[in-house]
Lab assay of single mutants.
Amino acid sequence: ASVAVIAAGTQGNIFATSALRSMRFLQILRMVRMDRRGGTWKLLGSVVYAHSKELITAWYIGFLVLIFASFLVYLAEKDANSDFSSYADSLWWGTITLTTIGYGDKTPHTWLGRVLAAGFALLGISFFALPAGILGSGFALKVQEQHRQKHFEKRRMPAANLIQAAWRLYSTDMSRAYLTATWYYYDSILPSFRELALLFEHVQRARNGGLRPLEVRRAPVPDGAPSRYPPVATCHRPGSTSFCPGESSRMGIKDRIRMGSSQRRTGPSKQHLAPPTMPTSPSSEQVGEATSPTKVQKSWSFNDRTRFRASLRLKPRTSAEDAPSEEVAEEKSYQCELTVDDIMPAVKTVIRSIRILKFLVAKRKFKETLRPYDVKDVIEQYSAGHLDMLGRIKSLQTRVDQIVGRGPGDRKAREKGDKGPSDAEVVDEISMMGRVVKVEKQVQSIEHKLDLLLGFYSRCLRSGTSASLGAVQVPLFDPDITSDYHSPVDHEDISVSAQTLSISRSVSTNMD
């Protein structure tokens, strides 16, 4: 405001104040949320940038038409019409005319000016109207692209899951042992070998009828009888010197917790746990005396209480009078009846079946994303299906024409109403129809010849004498029936064969 007042002088105070007050009108834009329509302006900018070359070309040609039209109309009207006294007036008329506004304040009066105005109007309006069409088509394409992008975003994750499931299904095939990355992934998420051994031990116990592997080994086996189970490696608790092959000598807290839970599941009659010990102070733990958990001091820290809870689970003690015997301790020893080589084939089979199920689920979810969402998608899918159906029908028609023997030239002739090819031409065609016709002709010829021969033979049998045999009239074959199959017997006289037959029969009768 200060700059405006200084620039306008003393009389500019009122002007500056009114100008600043008129800017209050811009507050109405906040009512229509114009300040939060950044996406709309961004869309407009992207459309203009995408079609910038077309817009520049249309505007450039339109500007050239405007300059030439205004100049030529000015030359034609400057002497006869006072409205075109300057080139600026003519340029104003050209702008209003070519933009199809047409105020009518300035019009050419001479015939030359009117002809020039009409010609440049028809030429220039087309170029001035091009930017509107370019922007409209650009907006339509952009909206369609955003629509497809939205659908693509919805299909991206199911497609990625389907590709991942397909690759993992491919890589978990037993015949592709060189693909090891997927197996490394499952090695990292699978439970430890100790848990798998416990699982298979329970399965084997159920197969043995509820007997433990130790009891199965204690059962008497006759001499020479084959053992029911192959000899396997035996594993004891981590306190002993022997372990399962492939295990580490260090046992983690999870393994100890699972070991304690498995020992508690063996039965309360074979294992008696004394009350857990509780320390009397955060600094020292008295293991010899058993106290109640309700006497825990409230001033303990979080670490002390955590250690106390761990001691409740991981440090059970047995009383002296209830101490288990050596046999019970041997039964409680952890027996590992299986090795990694025995378990891994079954584990890989389970993983393979899981990968198949996940692949089928991913495939079903991806197919669900291909379903249409709204009416536009339904129409688009219907149009695509219609085009596909037309293509299939056209391909089927082409194959039928190839089989029947109607080529493209014959199809055009039928469409024009011309006469089709004759039967002889159809026979000569190298097509399925021509071959079928040729075979039918040959079969008819053979059938006719057989009928003639059978009739001749029956007449010979009825006559009974050589004289009557020679008097029999043998009809000749019709050459038209034989089609294109020409037998060497067709052109010979059958009477010669009949005479030869009669001579042979007379000779045979004389010999008798």
Score class of each variant (00 low, 15 high):
residue 506 S to L: 09
residue 171 S to A: 03
residue 389 M to I: 02
residue 311 S to Y: 12
residue 306 T to N: 09
residue 339 T to P: 14
residue 187 D to G: 10
residue 481 I to S: 05
residue 228 R to G: 08
residue 237 R to L: 09
residue 305 R to H: 05
residue 406 R to G: 08
residue 208 N to S: 07
residue 366 F to C: 02
residue 359 F to I: 13
residue 168 R to C: 00
residue 473 Q to L: 00
residue 226 P to L: 10
residue 190 L to R: 06
residue 230 P to A: 05
residue 252 G to V: 06
residue 271 Q to R: 04
residue 486 H to R: 10
residue 316 P to R: 13
residue 222 P to R: 09
residue 493 D to Y: 13
residue 167 W to G: 00
residue 337 E to Q: 11
residue 179 L to Q: 02
residue 451 D to N: 07
residue 312 L to R: 10
residue 452 L to M: 08
residue 493 D to A: 06
residue 466 S to P: 04
residue 363 K to T: 14
residue 185 Y to D: 12
residue 384 A to P: 12
residue 216 V to G: 07
residue 504 S to T: 12
residue 402 Q to E: 09
residue 349 T to P: 10
residue 418 D to Y: 06
residue 175 S to I: 08
residue 351 I to S: 11
residue 290 A to G: 14
residue 267 G to D: 09
residue 421 P to R: 10
residue 369 T to K: 12
residue 442 Q to H: 08
residue 360 L to R: 11
residue 494 I to V: 12
residue 400 V to E: 02
residue 165 A to P: 00
residue 377 D to N: 03
residue 322 D to H: 09
residue 433 M to L: 10
residue 353 S to F: 14
residue 247 E to V: 15
residue 498 A to G: 09
residue 221 V to L: 11
residue 487 S to T: 04
residue 455 G to S: 13
residue 196 L to P: 06
residue 334 Y to H: 13
residue 311 S to F: 13
residue 283 S to G: 15
residue 367 K to R: 07
residue 276 P to R: 04
residue 278 M to K: 00
residue 437 V to L: 10
residue 276 P to L: 14
residue 241 T to A: 03
residue 335 Q to P: 07
residue 195 E to K: 07
residue 473 Q to K: 07
residue 243 F to L: 07
residue 230 P to R: 14
residue 277 T to S: 05
residue 254 K to N: 04
residue 193 F to I: 11
residue 290 A to P: 15
residue 335 Q to R: 06
residue 404 V to L: 08
residue 391 G to V: 09
residue 449 K to M: 15
residue 490 D to Y: 04
residue 190 L to F: 11
residue 373 Y to S: 02
residue 511 M to T: 08
residue 307 R to C: 05
residue 477 F to C: 03
residue 297 Q to K: 13
residue 349 T to A: 14
residue 223 D to N: 08
residue 165 A to S: 11
residue 436 V to G: 13
residue 392 R to W: 01
residue 275 P to A: 04
residue 328 V to E: 14
residue 447 E to D: 15
residue 326 E to A: 05
residue 430 I to N: 10
residue 386 H to N: 09
residue 325 S to L: 09
residue 405 G to C: 02
residue 460 C to W: 08
residue 341 D to V: 05
residue 298 K to R: 09
residue 195 E to A: 09
residue 498 A to P: 06
residue 414 R to G: 02
residue 355 R to G: 13
residue 387 L to Q: 11
residue 358 K to E: 13
residue 472 V to L: 06
residue 311 S to P: 12
residue 285 E to V: 14
residue 397 Q to P: 02
residue 410 D to E: 05
residue 465 T to P: 04
residue 165 A to V: 07
residue 317 R to G: 11
residue 469 L to R: 07
residue 257 I to S: 11
residue 207 R to L: 03
residue 512 D to H: 03
residue 385 G to V: 13
residue 492 E to Q: 06
residue 167 W to C: 00
residue 330 E to G: 12
residue 249 S to N: 09
residue 231 P to A: 15
residue 208 N to Y: 13
residue 177 A to T: 10
residue 413 A to G: 10
residue 253 I to F: 07
residue 436 V to L: 11
residue 374 D to Y: 01
residue 170 Y to S: 10
residue 330 E to A: 11
residue 352 R to S: 12
residue 339 T to M: 09
residue 171 S to F: 01
residue 269 S to A: 14
residue 215 E to V: 12
residue 463 S to C: 13
residue 446 I to V: 12
residue 222 P to H: 10
residue 445 S to Y: 12
residue 494 I to M: 13
residue 202 H to R: 01
residue 374 D to H: 01
residue 396 L to V: 11
residue 398 T to S: 13
residue 463 S to Y: 06
residue 458 S to L: 14
residue 429 E to Q: 11
residue 330 E to V: 01
residue 197 A to G: 12
residue 185 Y to H: 06
residue 395 S to R: 08
residue 339 T to R: 12
residue 383 S to A: 06
residue 302 F to Y: 15
residue 237 R to Q: 10
residue 508 S to C: 13
residue 381 Q to E: 02
residue 238 P to T: 08
residue 166 A to V: 08
residue 366 F to V: 15
residue 198 L to V: 05
residue 265 R to W: 05
residue 365 K to Q: 09
residue 395 S to I: 05
residue 473 Q to H: 03
residue 338 L to I: 07
residue 289 E to G: 05
residue 486 H to N: 03
residue 174 M to T: 06
residue 346 A to G: 11
residue 227 S to C: 07
residue 327 E to Q: 09
residue 440 E to D: 05
residue 284 S to T: 07
residue 473 Q to E: 08
residue 204 Q to K: 10
residue 221 V to E: 07
residue 395 S to N: 08
residue 403 I to M: 08
residue 369 T to P: 02
residue 351 I to F: 11
residue 447 E to V: 15
residue 450 L to M: 00
residue 332 K to N: 04
residue 263 Q to R: 08
residue 291 T to I: 07
residue 340 V to A: 10
residue 237 R to G: 07
residue 188 S to T: 11
residue 407 G to V: 11
residue 309 R to W: 11
residue 243 F to Y: 09
residue 413 A to P: 05
residue 237 R to P: 09
residue 507 V to G: 02
residue 507 V to L: 03
residue 306 T to S: 06
residue 364 R to M: 02
residue 402 Q to R: 08
residue 430 I to V: 09
residue 337 E to V: 13
residue 474 V to L: 08
residue 401 D to V: 14
residue 197 A to D: 10
residue 317 R to P: 15
residue 209 G to V: 06
residue 332 K to R: 13
residue 243 F to I: 13
residue 198 L to R: 01
residue 415 E to V: 12
residue 368 E to D: 02
residue 191 P to T: 11
residue 505 R to S: 15
residue 245 P to S: 07
residue 272 H to P: 04
residue 226 P to H: 13
residue 454 L to M: 13
residue 363 K to Q: 06
residue 263 Q to H: 13
residue 273 L to P: 05
residue 428 D to Y: 14
residue 499 Q to K: 08
residue 201 E to D: 10
residue 296 V to G: 02
residue 288 G to V: 15
residue 393 I to T: 01
residue 430 I to T: 10
residue 302 F to C: 02
residue 189 I to L: 10
residue 338 L to F: 12
residue 403 I to V: 14
residue 273 L to R: 07
residue 497 S to A: 12
residue 282 P to A: 11
residue 262 S to Y: 11
residue 484 D to E: 09
residue 324 P to H: 09
residue 423 D to Y: 06
residue 385 G to D: 11
residue 483 S to Y: 10
residue 227 S to Y: 10
residue 306 T to P: 10
residue 211 L to R: 10
residue 464 G to S: 05
residue 324 P to R: 07
residue 320 A to T: 14
residue 440 E to Q: 14
residue 336 C to S: 13
residue 394 K to T: 00
residue 505 R to H: 09
residue 190 L to P: 13
residue 195 E to G: 11
residue 404 V to E: 05
residue 371 R to Q: 08
residue 305 R to S: 15
residue 436 V to A: 06
residue 311 S to C: 13
residue 322 D to Y: 15
residue 283 S to R: 14
residue 361 V to A: 15
residue 218 R to L: 07
residue 401 D to Y: 15
residue 333 S to N: 10
residue 321 E to V: 02
residue 419 K to T: 13
residue 317 R to L: 15
residue 414 R to Q: 06
residue 169 L to R: 07
residue 416 K to R: 13
residue 267 G to R: 14
residue 455 G to D: 08
residue 500 T to P: 12
residue 360 L to M: 06
residue 460 C to Y: 11
residue 185 Y to N: 10
residue 303 N to T: 11
residue 294 T to N: 15
residue 247 E to D: 08
residue 395 S to T: 10
residue 342 D to V: 09
residue 328 V to G: 04
residue 443 V to E: 15
residue 169 L to M: 13
residue 299 S to I: 15
residue 292 S to N: 11
residue 448 H to N: 08
residue 341 D to Y: 09
residue 481 I to F: 05
residue 503 I to M: 15
residue 300 W to R: 15
residue 260 G to V: 15
residue 397 Q to R: 02
residue 411 R to W: 02
residue 331 E to G: 05
residue 351 I to V: 09
residue 202 H to Q: 12
residue 480 D to H: 08
residue 443 V to G: 14
residue 376 K to R: 15
residue 212 R to L: 06
residue 481 I to L: 11
residue 297 Q to E: 12
residue 209 G to A: 09
residue 441 K to M: 14
residue 176 R to Q: 06
residue 204 Q to R: 09
residue 502 S to T: 07
residue 233 A to P: 12
residue 245 P to A: 14
residue 198 L to P: 07
residue 435 R to P: 12
residue 257 I to L: 08
residue 171 S to P: 01
residue 292 S to T: 05
residue 224 G to A: 08
residue 448 H to Q: 11
residue 425 E to K: 06
residue 259 M to I: 07
residue 500 T to R: 13
residue 353 S to C: 10
residue 181 A to V: 00
residue 423 D to H: 11
residue 320 A to D: 15
residue 378 V to L: 10
residue 368 E to A: 03
residue 365 K to T: 12
residue 245 P to T: 14
residue 472 V to E: 09
residue 423 D to A: 14
residue 201 E to G: 07
residue 402 Q to P: 02
